[in-house]
Write a protein that binds this DNA or RNA. Structure first.
Length: 178
DNA sequence: CATATGATGGACT
DNA sequence: GTCCATCATATGG
């Protein structure tokens, strides 16, 4: 079952935590690649010094104010980042997918740049709803596997808030760092 | 095992 | 030219 707009229409830290264990799906040709989300980070509005929204109006902050459930693809260095817009429309808020665990394919996905490469995610998805075209979406996990959620400070961020806004599944080997 | 550093390219000033 | 929500490699214990 796919996650709807309501799922994303909450605060980024809640969405980030609840995305853990959900299944990210990517349709390529007639194959659907499935991967469990194991690591996320929450990003907020201009109060958040790590967020692009704190640097004024730009491509990213505009998209973060769009409707929840939209896909935000952002380019850092030569890699893409996969985010989902969260919160209410008009408020800058998003969740970064940092790492996934491949369920029915083999790939290195232990990092935000690696997983977008493995799933062939590019600018084509930027600004689309998460299930538009049925090429990329998130659904409930099939199993009810137990896992422990750990909070930590964000990674690779030059300026951070004194809050723990990174969430990951404890002990999962695809988490980029713990 | 750990931490440090250079390559990398798009967006912005 | 500067900044950056990264990665792979190199170095040291």
């Amino acid at each position: 079952m796919k996650l709807g707009k309501d799922f994303f229409a909450r605060d980024a830290d809640i969405v980030a935590r609840e995305l853990l264990g959900k299944v990210l799906c990517r349709k390529i040709d007639n194959n659907v690649l499935k991967a469990k989300i194991v690591e996320t980070e929450a990003y907020f509005d201009e109060k958040d010094p790590a967020s692009r929204a704190s640097k004024g109006e730009n491509k990213v902050s505009k998209m973060m104010k769009q409707e929840p459930g939209k896909i935000l693809v952002y380019n850092v260095h030569k890699y893409k980042m996969l985010n989902f817009v969260s919160g209410k429309k008009g408020v800058a808020s998003a969740v970064l997918i940092r790492a996934v665990e491949p369920l029915n394919f083999e790939a290195k996905t232990s990092g935000p740049g690696l997983l977008t490469s493995a799933l062939k995610i590019n600018d084509e998805f930027h600004g689309k709803f998460q299930d538009e075209k049925n090429l990329l979406w998130v659904e409930e996990s099939a199993d009810n596997e137990e896992f422990e959620i750990v909070k930590s400070f964000r990674i690779g961020v030059t300026k951070d808030l004194p809050e723990k806004l990174r969430f990951y599944i404890k002990g999962n080997k695809f988490v980029s760092r713990w």
